[in-house]
Design a protein around this nucleic acid. Structure first.
Lengths: 209, 209
DNA sequence: AGCGAACCGTACCGTACGGTACATAAAGTT
DNA sequence: AACTTTATGTACCGTACGGTACGGTTCGCT
């Protein structure tokens, strides 16, 4: 097992293997993600897989971890911003969030983690939660805090406010898509949905007189 | 194969088997739901299972269908109601929704359907969608329409309004629980969350001058 | 009583998968 | 050049599961 550069991730080779595995997962679901198939697709031996990742669960965890480490940090809250800039930042967040959750990779990873959540293993869900959703949530919460400090928003509990924003943006789209329904949100509708959600959010938490 | 009483469901015996199978699913996840385990738990033979439900997928579909047919119809919209009654009805819906999605059975069924959604089979997700979520959605949408007709709400698109209400109520609780996170909403918090969501909804769509 | 349908329990088959062992080859180290 | 490390590819093992076959039993019908 790799004892070094644990925090950042794995060897270049290993990362490549994980990417190939993710490809398989995205296009075939978990049932397609057999150790033999991964080895074949990635051009490595099964024995290497087991040496590197321990067992199949370790491999799945590695796939999720790797991908979760890729989340792009959104624009950090500018020290001083206008109300208009805040709104734009929120709209940007909303759009990005909608794009992310409707992406093939996100759907595949969430399906995988949810499937494993039945077993006692808290593993994948926790990883996805902590590295993905929680991270982006903290960023946006900070943004809301800033907006509150600047007097644009009125929210005593930014955590709560973020939760509301999330609900307004995502609605039931996520679960619908996870269940296999089509994401009928074209790029155009997506932008509109984002704007609408932010408008509603500001209507709830805005501090206009 | 049973050629009669198809629409309503199955034989009493078959329903009992499906219930036992659901029990297994709830407490052990999909991996525990083997044909042998079902036969043993339900006290029937595997051959009967295959005769009744075709194959394993047919059995899973039957489980989902059966449960989806159990959704209790919420209070139908009274012909004339006060604004306060509308609010109460909405709060009741919100509470019921939160209770439902955080229930063991709902979580297990959703996990199952999501797990199967990877394969091309649209089946389970569609069943769950149509029989469960869509049904309750239509009811509540009707309620919103009524509220709008009575002048309590201002929403040109009740469908859209319902979607917003759903988002405000559920937020990210559903996906969190599906991923294995704890539902930290005690019965007390749940009531409060429902009230808060409805308050926000009315703030957005209410028609008080 | 006799008959047929439905059903149970068990045994069985084929396959697929997770995991391991081994034989071999490339590449770096001394 | 000999040795160690690391990796590939193939073959293998045990097991678990979906699906089927079959003998024996119950039950309803005539």
């Amino acid at each position: 097992m790799p004892t070094e550069q644990e925090q950042t991730g794995f060897t270049d080779r290993q990362r490549a293997v994980l990417d190939k595995a993710l490809e398989l997962l995205v296009e075939g679901g978990e049932k397609a993600l057999t150790t033999a198939a991964i080895a074949r697709a990635a051009g490595c031996s099964k024995e290497s897989l087991y040496k590197w990742f321990g067992d199949r669960d370790g491999l799945l965890a590695a796939i999720v971890s790797r991908q979760a480490s890729k989340v792009i940090p959104g624009a950090d809250p500018a020290t001083n911003m206008s109300a208009e800039q805040l709104r734009t930042a929120l709209e940007e967040f909303a759009k990005s969030l909608l794009e992310t959750i409707s992406g093939d990779v996100s759907l595949a990873l969430n399906r995988l983690a949810i499937g494993q959540a039945s077993k006692s293993e808290t593993g994948l869900g926790a990883i996805l939660e902590k590295s993905g959703r929680a991270r982006i949530g903290r960023q946006t919460t900070a943004l809301l805090e800033k907006g509150s400090a600047l007097g644009y928003l009125r929210c005593e509990d930014p955590q709560e406010a973020y939760s509301t924003l999330y609900g307004l943006v995502v609605r039931d789209q996520h679960i619908r898509m996870l269940l296999g329904g089509t994401a009928q949100t074209s790029a155009k509708d997506l932008e509109l949905a984002a704007k609408t959600a932010v408008k509603q959010f500001i209507q709830l938490y805005g501090a206009e007189n």
